[in-house]
Design a protein around this nucleic acid. Structure first.
Length: 576
DNA sequence: GCCGTTTTCGGCCCGACTGTTTTCAGTCG
């Protein structure tokens, strides 16, 4: 069964090859545009095509639609097959080298027959690369380093890793003399689940001082560039590989436009500048201009305002229709969160007691938490036997009586077994305040089987929340082949709440799935799945996903006061 | 290749930086 993501890679590959072949850029970009458009499609492509909806997608015209149809019926695209045959199989890997664009790749391939990282390295050592037209000593050196980088880095950096790193760097830069404002821009500010480069923006009149401090950061393992207004470094990344961090310094009057500009996304910016041109403005990182006169620049809000738009939250700047907004959406914020309904203790695989978790949550200002340790089948996670679970219920009830500042709900994270049955009997589940039901085993079942399994579990009246619905681990494990449209439909029908698991390794549901839930009127819960108090900090990542999905506070269970939460649970149990 | 409240043809966002140049091409975001 050909998947949409296969088609997306295929279109991007067509663009890459066309570019190497010297095709005109607008034609090349049309394939990238089409690929991007497909990324936002949540319904199965075949269904979309069947109801004639392909042409409604931005960037999909007659020719693209025909290629998509071809892909759906044959599993391939003849044009792609032909193009692939026109270049050596390993050539596209050279795109991962910073500084190697399509022109240089074409050059080394055609002049030297280079078709892989190793072949390129060999030509550098033999001195042949330096002899090519346009290749000087510095270019060769940069490419040599780029090959190492390409081999070491690979995956994009998870949001949680990049966020922490940016916070550390910002703490240092904000202390540099003359720095008035500093924040992260780019995909990090937009809250993307993975980050390419980290972008930092500073407001200061002394760029040299800022870049100096930036390039001397203890985290910097190499300095790539250091100018008056811009610097680039490589830092070691937690979890291996290296990560590029760019820092830019602008004066006060340009900070707003620069922040807008460097936040992106690229597609959003293109749209915005098109709009600016239509309204006889010129927009760049230095300001919004009519002629030579700046009409906005200091504040990001003003840029949007002058263009006749409400301020658009960074998480929504993905060219998914946000330029049509009439007002700024009131997205959920971290401060709206009143509790955390999925966490573990030493009873199963957590590292702290329920009392300590409650204490920590209370300090965060939460009104309630739920203790949800693993069920008996999760033996690796020291899941609780039926007897132990009954005792756990008593223990948490007692703890709740003792605790005055926070309500502690007794719950469990109950395994959804491979046939869709639950790991505890209903009598035990009924004794809990709430139940998170999750798949942990047999995640590789086929689509029909795994979907039926999850739908069946959702029918159980005691299943409050479907935990980390797809089971994916970012950069580590693919999601289950779950029919999310069916899951969302079932959630609406059974009043089951879908989790956005806020752990940065998971972020599951992702933004698009959470948006599907929103559109179907399905309630979402944002939980950290904490195994230690410190992990409750990850709530911000889950809130970020929710914001990218366009969720408001009222669409999220754990922004509600406890009586309302209980009402929602009761509603599911009563089947009304 | 896509697209249209000035267009069905002729546009398609914009600037910085780098290196190898002597006026610019390529890459990047």
């Amino acid at each position: 069964m050909p998947s949409t993501s296969d088609l997306i890679s295929l279109f991007n590959e067509i663009a890459d090859i066309l570019e190497i072949n010297g095709e005109q850029v607008f034609r090349v970009n049309s394939y990238r545009r089409a690929a991007r458009s497909l990324k936002d499609v949540t319904e199965p492509l075949a269904e979309l095509a069947a109801r004639g909806g392909l042409a409604d997608l931005p960037g999909i015209g007659k020719s693209m639609a025909a290629r998509i149809e071809e892909f759906l019926s044959t599993g391939k695209v003849a044009m792609h097959v032909e193009l692939s045959a026109s270049i050596p199989p390993g050539l596209l890997k050279l795109r991962a080298i910073p500084g190697m664009g399509p022109k240089k790749i074409a050059l080394v391939w055609k002049e030297l027959g280079v078709d892989s990282l190793d072949a390129l390295r060999a030509r550098i050592q033999s001195g042949e690369l330096a002899k090519l037209k346009g290749m000087g000593e510095k270019s060769v050196e940069q490419i040599a380093k780029g090959i190492d980088f390409a081999e070491r880095s690979g995956d994009r950096t998870p949001l949680g890793v990049a966020w922490t790193l940016a916070d550390e760097i910002l703490a240092v830069l904000r202390k540099v003399k003359g720095v008035r404002r500093a924040e992260a821009a780019g995909s990090l500010r937009r809250g993307c689940e993975t980050i390419g480069d980290v972008d930092i923006l500073c407001e200061s009149d002394d760029g040299t001082a800022v870049i100096d401090a930036f390039t001397k950061l203890p985290q910097a393992v190499r300095v790539l560039a250091a100018g008056d207004t811009k610097g680039s470094i490589l830092v070691e990344r937690r979890g291996g590989g290296e990560l590029q961090v760019d820092c830019r310094v602008v004066p006060r009057e340009s900070y707003g436009t620069a922040l807008q500009y460097f936040t992106g996304s690229k597609e959003h910016n293109v749209r915005l500048r098109e709009l600016a041109v239509k309204k006889k403005f010129k927009l760049n990182e230095w300001g919004l201009f009519t002629g030579d006169k700046a009409v906005a620049g200091e504040k990001e809000e003003d840029v949007y305002k002058k263009l006749g738009l409400p301020w658009i939250p960074p998480e929504l700047r993905e060219d998914r229709g946000e330029l049509e907004f009439l007002e700024t959406p009131r997205l959920i914020e971290l401060s709206d969160i009143r509790g955390d309904l999925h966490m573990h203790t030493t009873a199963s695989d957590g590292t702290m007691s329920a009392a300590d978790m409650a204490e920590a949550a209370s300090k965060r200002g939460y009104e309630y938490i739920a203790i949800t340790d693993h069920s008996r089948s999760s033996t690796i996670a020291n899941g609780l036997t039926i007897d132990r679970m009954w005792r756990q219920i008593e223990k948490i009830r007692a703890l709740n009586k003792d605790h005055k500042t926070i309500s502690v709900l007794i719950g469990c994270e109950c395994d959804i077994l491979s046939d869709g049955k639950l790991d505890y009997p209903d009598s035990l589940l009924a004794a809990c305040d709430l139940v998170v039901a999750s798949v942990h085993a047999s995640q590789r079942q086929d689509r029909a089987k795994v979907t039926a399994r999850v739908l069946k579990a959702m029918e159980n009246p005691y299943v409050t929340i479907l935990g980390h619905p797809t089971g994916r681990l970012i950069n580590k494990r693919e999601p289950m082949d779950l029919d999310m449209a069916a899951v969302v439909k079932q959630a609406a029908k059974t009043h089951t709440i879908l989790e956005i698991n806020a752990s940065w390794q998971r972020l599951d549901l992702n933004d698009l799935h959470a948006r599907m839930a929103r559109d179907a009127g399905v309630l979402v819960a944002i939980n950290t799945d904490s195994h230690a108090a410190i992990q409750m900090e990850q709530m911000k990542f889950g809130v970020t996903v929710a914001r990218r999905a366009g969720l408001e506070a009222k669409q999220v269970l754990n922004t509600l006061p406890l009586p309302s939460v209980r009402k929602r649970i009761a509603r599911k149990r009563s089947g009304e």
